[in-house]
Design a protein around this nucleic acid. Structure first.
Length: 884
DNA sequence: ATCGTTACGTT
DNA sequence: GACGTACGTAACGATC
């Protein structure tokens, strides 16, 4: 035994452990939304991360078998011949595991014609010779022979989390032989998984006894004639087999290795790669378990790593310094941060942390002046949040010129996790942060709010330097500086304003919906003779529908068969049943009741709902709305309309005005495709769907029936989403061939649209990203995925992103224009909502006409396209009334 | 308490 | 076998 190990070498049999993980975790519980199975990747990575955390190896390698034969199959073609073909869900996970290893910074090794075990055996020898403690992780029993005082085998007992530790003593206890003699024993007993038969009638007990008596396999074979009993005869009949077994189960310890031991030395993980992998594989909890392996100096962009020393001064001193030093240097970068307790500023290599609770009024005035000074440029991370925190103290935040959260989003909008710590991790490597204190609630005991804010401000400044360059290199500087950044303040004011709610109306709607839900539930129970089912449980519904009622099976889902509205309607057409009707009615009513309850719970003390708009969620560039989501308030049904009656104009204001773009996405498609026929339709101001219907069906516009019009409408909208003939047929209730014919006719008339849609995907595949009219990019690596389903999903997204994204850019430009006009014309009216193609403004008394004009002009003039931008405007006391 | 799944509202 | 983008919310039920 080596006296003092210099470190630990962790050696893993990649495929063997991946297989254990695959069979240990149900594949149906582990796959991405696009259907890529991930159970083996997940289980394997979890196991490795746990081992690395607990054993803290200095050197790590994972060895893989390569496809194709080895010297063993050359010797004996049937070697391992009985193994079942690998399940199709397993194979694609192997390259993912190797990618994950690369992200983790773990060496993965392989060698043609040799098995992973031979590499493990060789590295185990090299490791122990170098004085390392060696841990071998494998589910292959052949590796037992590697165990000695320096080498321990971790063998999976069940799954991959339960590993049993084989030391020499443990091997002796379990098999009755020393580790070095295990191959002798295995040769006699045979190994079914390797398709190596043993001596019939000889099991581990007999084999171990013989090894004990004779000393080893060589001795047993040379004295075979003396071995007594029936087993002895059996041995004599199978001597050749035993010799072959022993030859094959010997692991080679003298391979020429692909990487020398030094190269296995562990240097930490790559933060960005970890994020990319976890994003791609949709791992949530695993991400946090992997990030600890990222070390500060691993692969971080060079220029960003200037050491930043945070100097915390007393609050009073800090403010004094702030008003002097910082305002004089407005040309350089100023990082800032603010929350409810503190303000942090970083400028010219120095950071200030200011605890707001300890300011004198004079100091607060000085600080407020600095924050509100629009000529002092400030960069924050999540500036809108800071704006709200300060606004709550009556402080206005102006001069926002950068937001590293938004910059990071623009650089790669498909990522998730744009909180400061995540973005710091991603772009600057691991950064110890005062705010990253682990799971415990930060009580501000270990660090002052000021210190944390100052530190964050410094980090933001460093991040901004890096991200500005990234944004610039992607051609999005204008989009960033002139659109997204100014929008921050607009959104902040909209959120601050909120929208007034008629809570009494909401309550009465809720009572109605709950009443209808109860009636429908009763109908449902009557229809099946009892209430032994929770109508809100898809699982229980499946039992009722497909087992108790023996209904025909619907669309297959993970947990059985779907009970969604579409499936239930199809079912009802095939096999009418009162339960189905009652269930659908119940769903409808409970959904409405749920929406109403959700809204009511969000009404604040001012009688208004203040949603939060996010600029960094929707990858296409749309805004998203949450707490509550005011962008999915029902509208299609009469009940939906009545919910919109609950959104009302506030006291002191006169009316709600809503303005929406008409067919914005079709217009953008006309512009982007340059299709003359489509452009002509929009320029002529005709009814679009009637015009298109006339062309597609070859009739005069006045002869387009409502049916034809609705078919064409569905198709037009579907095109921008990558709708297939199958999807169209399903939606229109046609045969696939009829739907296909409809699409063919469409493209015959609007050929440039087809060429554009095709071209946009081809270009995106080539460039790696899609682009909107205003240069917003979305990266689409999956366009060249070898997985068809994944690729096709990416193709539809690529088709849609420039259209949806350009529409998003347009309305954002319009919002900036509207805000400027309202300010410049000294109007008290204010924007309150945005719903993708619609703006809602609450108008002050006497301003309605001016506001309507502003909305028409700013929305209609948001861009100069090949087609006009039509805007519909309405006004009323409620959102519903305004929408008419 | 947390997570995945299903379902469903909008554009 | 799948087959229309982009989201946010809620309930259920399994799992910790």
């Amino acid at each position: 035994m080596s006296a003092t190990p210099q470190g630990t070498l962790l050696l893993v049999d990649g495929l063997s452990m991946a297989f254990r993980a695959f069979f240990g975790l149900p594949v149906e519980n582990f796959s991405t939304s696009t259907g890529t199975p991930t159970n083996a990747v997940y289980g394997f990575t979890t196991m490795l991360a746990t081992l690395m955390r607990d054993r803290e190896p200095t050197h790590v390698a994972v060895a893989f078998d390569l496809p194709g034969g080895t010297f063993r199959t050359e010797r004996l073609p049937s070697y391992k011949g009985t193994r079942d073909a690998t399940p199709p869900e397993f194979e694609p996970q192997v390259p993912l595991i190797r990618e994950m290893l690369q992200a983790l910074g773990v060496a993965s090794v392989d060698k043609e014609r040799y098995e992973a075990d031979d590499l493990l055996a060789t590295y185990a020898r090299l490791g122990s010779e170098a004085g390392l403690r060696v841990l071998v992780v494998s589910g292959d029993r052949d590796t037992i022979q590697l165990v000695n005082d320096d080498v321990t085998l971790l063998y999976p007992r069940k799954g991959v989390s339960d590993l049993v530790e084989f030391t020499p003593d443990a091997v002796r206890e379990k098999y009755g032989v020393a580790p070095g003699q295990y191959p002798d024993l295995a040769a006699l007993v045979g190994e079914t998984s390797d398709n190596l038969p043993g001596v019939p009638g000889v099991g581990p007990k007999t084999a171990a006894k013989w090894i004990g008596v004779y000393g080893g396999l060589e001795e047993i074979l040379s004295q075979a004639d003396d071995v007594p009993g029936k087993a002895g005869q059996s041995l004599r009949d199978h001597l050749d087999q035993v010799r072959l077994n022993r030859e094959l189960n010997h692991l080679l310890t003298d391979l020429e290795v692909p990487l020398d031991l030094e190269a296995l030395s562990y240097g930490g993980a790559d933060a960005q790669a970890i994020h990319e992998m976890c994003d791609a594989l949709q791992f949530r909890t695993l991400r946090d378990r992997l990030l600890p392996f990222v070390v500060g100096d691993a692969e971080a962009p060079a220029e960003s790593r200037d050491e930043v020393e945070v100097v915390l001064e007393g609050a009073v001193d800090a403010v004094t310094a702030l008003t002097g030093a910082v305002t004089l240097h407005v040309d350089g970068r100023t990082g800032a941060d603010a929350d409810a307790w503190a303000v942090g500023v970083f400028h010219g290599g120095e950071a200030w942390g200011i605890d707001l609770s300890s300011l004198t009024s004079a100091e607060e005035e000085s600080l407020t002046g600095w924050l509100a000074d629009a000529t002092v440029p400030k960069t924050l991370h999540g500036a809108k949040d800071a704006w709200h925190s300060l606004a709550a103290r009556g402080i206005e935040l102006r001069g926002i010129v950068g937001d590293t959260q938004i910059a990071a989003f623009l650089v790669n909008p498909d990522q998730r996790g744009f909180d400061l710590d995540s973005v710091l991790q991603r772009y600057l490597g691991a950064v110890p942060s005062a705010s990253a204190g682990g799971d415990e609630l930060d009580l501000g005991l270990s660090t002052s709010p000021g210190l944390a804010a100052g530190e964050r401000a410094a980090h933001v400044a460093a991040l901004a330097d890096l991200l500005d360059a990234e944004v610039e290199s992607r051609g999005m500087s204008d989009l960033y500086a002139d659109l997204e950044i100014p929008l921050v303040s607009v959104l902040a004011r909209m959120e601050d304003a909120g929208i007034a709610v008629d809570t009494a109306h909401l309550d009465s709607l809720s009572d109605e919906a709950l009443g209808r839900a109860a009636l429908a539930a009763q109908d449902a129970y009557d229809a099946i003779g009892g209430d032994q089912v929770n109508l809100g449980s898809p699982k229980q519904l499946q039992e009722v529908l497909f087992e108790r009622l023996g209904m025909p099976k619907t669309r297959k889902i993970k947990t059985g068969y779907s009970t969604d509205a579409g499936s239930l309607q199809e079912l009802h057409a095939k096999r009418p049943h009162p339960f189905l009707e009652a269930l659908l009615a119940h769903r409808d009513s409970t959904k409405l009741a749920q929406i109403i309850k959700g809204l009511a719970s969000e009404v604040r003390a001012d009688g208004r709902i203040h949603t939060t708009f996010s600029q960094t969620v929707a990858a296409t560039g749309r805004l998203s709305s949450r707490d509550p989501n005011l962008q999915n308030i029902p509208i299609r049904t009469d009940e939906g309309h009545r919910i919109r009656e609950a959104f009302v104009v506030g006291a002191e204001f006169e009316t709600l005005v809503t303005a929406d773009y008409s067919q914005i996405e079709m217009r953008i498609m006309a512009h982007l495709s340059g299709d003359e026929a489509l452009i002509e339709a929009f320029r002529g101001g005709e009814d679009l769907h009637r015009f298109v219907g006339a062309r597609v069906f070859g009739v005069e516009p006045e002869d387009v029936t409502p049916h034809m019009r609705s078919q064409v409408k569905a198709m037009s909208y579907g095109l921008a989403y990558g709708l297939s003939s199958f999807g169209l047929s399903k939606q229109l209730g046609l045969e696939v061939s009829q739907a296909q014919a409809l699409m063919d006719d469409y493209f015959a008339r609007f050929g440039a649209v087809r060429d554009y849609l095709k071209g946009v995907v081809a270009k995106a595949r080539e460039d790696g990203y899609t682009e909107t009219i205003f240069g917003r990019r979305r990266y689409m690596p999956d366009l060249s995925s070898t997985n068809r389903q994944r690729r096709e999903i990416a193709e539809r997204a690529a088709l849609n992103a420039p259209i949806q994204g350009s529409a998003a850019d347009l309305i954002k430009r319009a919002m900036l224009g509207v805000e400027d006009r309202l300010r410049d014309e000294r109007l008290a009216s204010r924007q309150v909502l945005q719903v993708h193609d619609e703006l809602v403004v609450e108008t002050a008394p006497g301003e309605r006409d001016a506001v309507e004009a502003i909305l028409r002009e700013e929305m209609g003039g948001a861009a100069d396209l090949a087609v006009p931008l039509d805007v519909n405007v309405g006004a009323g006391a409620t959102w519903r009334a305004a929408g008419h």
